[in-house]
Computed example of a mutant assay.
Amino acid sequence: MFPIRDHNPSGRTPFVVYALLIFNIGIFLSYQPIVGDDYRLALFFDQWALIPAAVTEGQRLHGLFSSMFLHGGWMHLLGNMLFLWIFGDNLEDEMGHVGFLVFYILSGLGAGFAQIAADPGSIIPMVGASGAIAGVMGGYLLLFPKARVDILLILIIIFRIFTIPAWIMLCFWFGLQLFNGVLSDPETGGVAHWAHAGGFVIGVVLAIPVWLRLGGTRYWQRTHGHPPHPETRYRLSQSSIPRVRRRR
Rank of each mutant, 00 (worst) to 15 (best):
T232N: 06
V127L: 05
V127M: 10
I151M: 15
W194D: 05
A132C: 07
A49N: 14
V149E: 13
I51F: 03
R245C: 05
A195E: 10
A166Q: 03
L64E: 03
V35G: 00
P33Q: 00
S237D: 13
R233S: 04
S30R: 11
W85E: 04
P14T: 07
M75Y: 03
I168H: 02
V17M: 11
G36W: 05
G139P: 03
P228D: 13
F83D: 00
D93R: 13
G26V: 06
P186T: 06
A117F: 14
F69H: 02
L21W: 06
G216P: 02
A195Q: 14
T232E: 06
L78I: 03
L50H: 08
G181Q: 13
E231R: 14
T217D: 04
R213D: 09
G199A: 08
F162W: 07
Y31Q: 02
L101M: 13
F44Y: 14
G73H: 01
A42P: 02
G108I: 07
L84K: 13
L70W: 08
W220P: 00
M126N: 11
A192M: 01
N90D: 12
A147T: 05
G139E: 05
Y39N: 10
D37K: 08
G96M: 08
G99C: 00
V191R: 13
R235E: 12
S130P: 01
S66W: 13
L109Y: 06
G72L: 00
H62N: 12
L82Y: 01
I151D: 08
F87Q: 13
C171G: 09
A19N: 11
F28C: 00
H196D: 14
P145T: 02
G203V: 01
G216Y: 05
G121A: 15
L21Q: 13
W194Y: 13
G96V: 06
H226N: 11
Q59N: 11
L152A: 07
V191W: 14
M68L: 03
R235G: 05
S107V: 09
P120T: 04
V204I: 15
G128W: 04
A147W: 04
F179T: 12
R218G: 00
V136M: 12
F83Y: 11
G121Y: 08
L20F: 12
A42D: 09
H224A: 13
P120F: 07
I164F: 06
S130M: 09
A192E: 06
V201G: 05
Q177C: 15
Y140V: 05
E187W: 12
F45N: 01
G175I: 06
Y219P: 06
P14R: 10
H62P: 04
H71W: 00
R233M: 08
G110E: 07
H224K: 13
G112Q: 14
I4T: 09
G121L: 10
F174W: 04
H76P: 00
L155P: 00
W173R: 12
F100M: 04
G216A: 10
T223F: 10
L41M: 15
F45M: 14
L212K: 12
L170N: 10
S10L: 01
L20I: 14
Q221V: 05
M137T: 06
V204C: 10
H76A: 15
P209W: 02
R245L: 10
A147L: 04
M68T: 01
V16P: 12
A147S: 15
L64V: 11
P209C: 02
L141P: 09
I241L: 15
Q177I: 02
L29V: 09
D6F: 02
